[in-house]
Structures are given as C-alpha cells and as structure tokens.
C-alpha cells in the first residue's frame, strides 16, 4: 500500500526530469531552499569558505600584532568588535584567520580518511574471506579506543603542527568510512543488478569499478559532509589540549586554550572562538543532514 503511495509521489517529478546538467543544478537549489535548515547550513558553509580564502585581506587588524597597552579589552571598545586577548591582539581578526585552519583540517582529513576508509571498506565487503575478517578486527580494535585519545597518542608520537594533526585525525577517522562502505558494498553485492552483471559475463573487477563504485558515491558524500563537522571539533579539542596548531598561529582550538586562564575575568577570550566552532560544526551538520534526507529516499526509491 505504501509502495503505491510512493509511486504516486515519485511518478510526478520523474516525468519532468531531464538528463541535462542545468536542470539537476536547478533541482538541487530548488530542493535546498525548500528546507530552511539546509539553506542555513549552506550559507554558513559558503561564509566559512569565503573567510578562509579571503581571511587575511578582510581582517580589521593584524591577528599577530600584540599591543600590551590594549590587552584584555572587552568587546566593542576602541574599534575592537570582539575585544582583545591577553596580548592585546584583536580577537575578531584571529577568529577570521583561524577559520582557514579549521576548513583545511576538516576537508583534508575527510578526503584522506575517506579515501583510505573506502578502499578498505571495498576490499573487505567485496572480496570477503580472511581479508575481511582481518581488516574488520583491526577496525573493531580501533573503535574500542576513544577517538580523541587515539588522536592525542598519535600526536604525542609524531609531534604537533598542522600536517601532523591532519595525519593523526585521518588515522583516527578512517574506520567510520571503512565500516559504512563495507556494509554498503555488502548490500550492493546482493542486488539483482549485480547478479545480472555476473549473468552477462562482466568480470569481477568491472563489476566493482563500473557498477558498485558509482553506487557508493551518494552515501560517501553524505558521510563525508557529516564527518567534516566532527573533525573540526576534534581539531579544536586537540589544539585546546596544546597538541595542535602552535601559537602564535591562530586557530580556534588554541585560542580556547590561551583564553581558559582568563575565563573568570575576561569571558570574551573563550566565548567567541567557542561560538565560531559551534557555528561551523552546526552549519556543516545541518547541510549534511539535509543532504542525507534528500539523497537517501532516492536511493531507496530505486
């Protein structure tokens, strides 16, 4: 009965689908603007990208310039919109420049962890056998270890810094991709169109690359968009603990770290970077949620 209902729904837009590029971009935005949470997420992401690219040119002050005569100014004084820190540096400028670190880390980590996790997931799910058993036990062991703790341990070994934190976050984060891709592959393997390929005489590798891989694209995009938020927060946590981006280079996490000593006297030191982290993570997650909601029914409907 619900299948019938669904058909009644799906028939209609299907009639108007054209296999042209413009129309699919048009449909993307038409769909996006229908959901206010998705739209908000999208706007936040655009904003993040903008300031992370043009940050150094739009900051009101030099984020590294210390002026002790102006230290710990509260917000809205002397032209410092969000106030200054213990060294007299402009907080707004530091947040704007720090956005770049968050974006770079979020995106790069997802790309690296995503690629590695996908490869492992595919090998595990498609070839099964002892390879699968070994790989999945590794995943299990790693999942039983707290994510942040693992990242800290790796950082402690390989040292701090932007490059190393990306490496450590990717090592901590690939397992989620591997798990999900493996289960997707397992489900796809049993699909009738894959059986149809075997019956046609398509080789195993061609089935994998021509038929299974394209069907992994949508779930991968969804997971990646949701993971970016996780990694941004993780980076902030690690920097907060002093392992991440090293001062004086501004990053949201180490701003929190430096500000924590003044939490009772100068609340703005820690509040504004915190809000920046929340907004960034929220924006990415809202958008990711919307992506999942719009793309998933399509997956099921087919």
């Amino acid at each position: 009965m619900s299948a019938n209902l669904e058909k009644a729904f799906h028939n209609e837009p299907a009639a108007k689908i054209k296999s042209k590029k413009e129309s699919s971009i048009y449909r993307f935005f038409a769909n996006l603007f229908r959901s206010w949470t998705g739209t908000l997420g999208f706007i936040i992401i655009l904003g993040l990208l903008f300031i992370s690219i043009f940050g150094p040119w739009i900051t009101p002050y030099d984020p590294l310039y210390a002026d002790f005569s102006k230290k710990l100014l509260p917000p809205m004084t002397d032209g410092h919109l969000l106030g200054t820190d213990q060294l007299g540096r402009d907080i707004l400028s530091r947040i704007i420049v720090g956005a770049r670190v968050s974006v770079i880390i979020g995106v790069l980590t997802v790309v690296i962890a995503g690629i590695f996790g996908t490869v492992v997931g595919i090998i595990s799910g498609y070839f099964r056998g002892w390879v699968d058993v070994v790989l999945m036990r590794i995943v299990d062991v790693q999942l039983s270890f707290p994510f942040i703790l693992l990242v800290l341990v790796i950082n402690a070994i390989i040292g701090a810094g932007l490059r190393n934190i990306i490496i450590s976050l990717a090592i901590g984060g690939w397992v989620i991709f591997a798990r999900m891709i493996r289960s997707e592959v397992l489900a796809l393997r049993e699909k009738e169109f894959i059986t149809a390929c075997v019956a046609t005489g398509v080789s195993r590798f061609e089935i994998l690359f021509r038929h299974i891989l394209p069907n992994l694209f949508t779930p991968l995009i969804i997971l990646a968009s949701l993971q970016i938020g996780t990694f941004i927060i993780a980076e902030a946590s690690v920097s907060f603990l002093g392992f991440g981006v090293q001062p004086p280079e501004p990053a949201w996490g180490n701003m929190l770290n430096e500000g924590k000593d003044y939490i009772f006297s100068s609340w703005w030191l820690i509040t504004f970077p915190g809000i920046a982290i929340i907004i960034a993570a929220l924006g990415v997650n809202l958008f990711g949620d919307w992506l999942r909601d719009t793309l998933d029914p399509e997956l099921k409907g087919e």
């Binding site: 009965m1 058909k7 009644a8």
Partner: peptide, 11 residues
C-alpha cells in the same frame, strides 16, 4: 492496475 487509485481510495 497499479497507480489507478484503488489503494488510495481504500486509504
């Protein structure tokens, strides 16, 4: 046949 509206009627 499917899509003729018979199930929707019953719902």
């Amino acid at each position: 046949e499917s899509g003729c509206g018979k199930s929707v009627t019953s719902l």
